[in-house]
């Protein structure tokens, strides 16, 4: 925002992390944490990673909920696949063409897909937007592609304009 506090969210997160590590809110650690948070914000401003512009806070919440539900569901599915018989499982690579181009949005999508059991981001072709995924349960390629476009890509395009 200003020169004094260039990255307010990052600085606040640093302060909270410092207080969690110390497990107090007494004045001493708060003072050290404030200095740390300010220094962290300035260091980040010097490094200039580019500021993500978040629009639509509601969309962020909706995406978070969808991701949590999907991770819970795929936890159960993958546990069943691992314990089940290996003959019925069919895994493989899957290609999807994305319209998403914002690098920060792509990074978030990569983290979501890799953190969820059952899907793993393998490679991305930045020129034409082809994404190479590995899917553990590749029964219906169409439905996987549709699921990723509808549930993740659309909200991410809304959040990162």
């Amino acid at each position: 925002m200003s020169r004094f506090l260039p990255h307010p969210v990052i600085s606040a997160a640093l302060l909270v992390m410092w207080l969690l590590l110390n497990q107090t809110v007494s004045p001493g650690p708060v003072l050290v944490g404030l200095v740390l948070a300010l220094l962290g914000g300035w260091a980040l401003a010097v490094l200039r990673p580019g500021r993500p512009r978040l629009a639509r806070f509601g969309a962020v919440l909706r995406l978070t909920r969808a991701v949590l539900v999907d991770i819970a569901r795929s936890n159960i599915t993958v546990a069943g696949l691992i314990l089940g018989r290996s003959k019925t499982r069919r895994s493989g690579f899957l290609r999807i063409q994305l319209r998403l181009r914002n690098p920060q949005a792509l990074a978030v999508l990569a983290c979501i897909l890799t953190a969820a059991p059952g899907t793993a981001w393998v490679e991305f072709d930045a020129e034409e937007g082809w994404l190479l995924l590995h899917v553990l349960d590749l029964i219906d390629e169409e439905s996987w592609a549709r699921m990723i476009c509808d549930r993740y890509e659309e909200p991410l395009m809304e959040i990162f304009p």
């Binding site: 991770i71 290996s86 590995h134 553990l136």
Partner: peptide, 19 residues
């Protein structure tokens, strides 16, 4: 231990690291 291919085994640790 059970999954047969490296890319399949890449999915296995995420069970432990997520829920």
């Amino acid at each position: 231990v059970r999954l047969g291919d490296f890319y399949e085994r890449l999915h296995a640790p995420t069970l432990g690291t997520s829920f």
